[in-house]
């Protein structure tokens, strides 16, 4: 079998909060292959943010292994993590997280700057990425001159510009109205259709259903992993007996 792009092997993550130890991820295992469009879905406190941080190499597992493209991320130091985030991952955040003092072009250039791409090439690639998301005419604008949907498109352009292996979208529609949400989701689908691997983190079932596959988390455990169009994907499994609606 082909090497999975993302592979969780019994990943655990515990946080110490005062006297209590919180188990945010408990023996999570799954694989995501190249070119998939996966939604990781769960309620607040289900462990999806922990998953997202680990997949995004912003955090490392307490135990278990996380292999990204065959590299064991758990054993990397901070600089190696920074380098792998830069090369392998493209982030789309709920709050867009654009730098307000920089123009759109400069915002999109940031990942390339840290990758050491020369100034001219950087500008050219950032421009192309912004054109792809339909903002080619606003290169010099500041983020606050744009609507939320447009800002999220800039953030997608920024995620794409470094040609990463994985696009990681954390509640990308959380701050948007339903119409712009649909636009942004369509854009993510287009990104996927273009051959990219997209991992979508959301609490919203209707958003999650836009993906091909759903991994549902509850209390730090995987309770469903499969086709997004199966009924169980979105229904709370009663059998688990914990956390589900009665």
């Amino acid at each position: 079998m082909e090497q999975a792009l993302i592979e969780f092997q019994n990943v655990c993550k515990t946080y110490v909060m005062g006297d209590a130890t919180v188990r945010a991820a408990d023996q999570i295992s799954f694989q995501i292959g190249r070119g998939e469009f996966v939604a990781i879905v769960g309620k607040s406190g289900s462990g999806k943010s922990t998953c997202m941080n680990i997949i995004g190499c912003l955090d490392i597992p307490t135990s278990g292994n996380y292999l990204l493209n065959g590299h064991n991320v758990g054993q990397m130091n901070k600089n190696e993590l920074a380098a792998i985030r830069n090369k392998m991952l493209g982030f789309v955040f709920q709050q867009y997280n654009l730098l307000p003092k920089l123009s759109l072009l400069e915002n999109v250039e940031i990942p390339l700057m840290y990758a050491g791409v020369a100034r001219e090439e950087r500008k050219q690639r950032a421009k192309t990425a912004l054109e792809q998301v339909g903002l080619g005419d606003k290169l010099r604008n500041r983020p606050n001159q744009l609507s939320g949907g447009q800002q999220q498109r800039v953030s997608i352009a920024r995620a794409l510009v470094g040609r990463p292996a994985v696009i990681l979208a954390d509640e990308p529609t959380g701050a948007l109205d339903s119409r712009t949400s649909r636009e942004v989701l369509q854009m993510l689908k287009d990104v996927h259709a273009a051959g990219n691997t997209v991992v979508l983190i959301t609490h919203d079932n209707s958003i999650a259903m836009q993906a091909q596959r759903i991994i549902r988390l509850e209390d730090g455990c995987v309770v469903y992993d499969g086709d997004a169009h199966e009924p169980e994907a979105v229904v709370q499994p009663r059998a688990a007996g914990t956390g589900g609606n009665p």
Partner: peptide
Amino acid sequence: QEIGIRKALGAKERY
């Protein structure tokens, strides 16, 4: 926040 964004986008500590 800016520092967080930059780090997420691949800025190493020394940058």
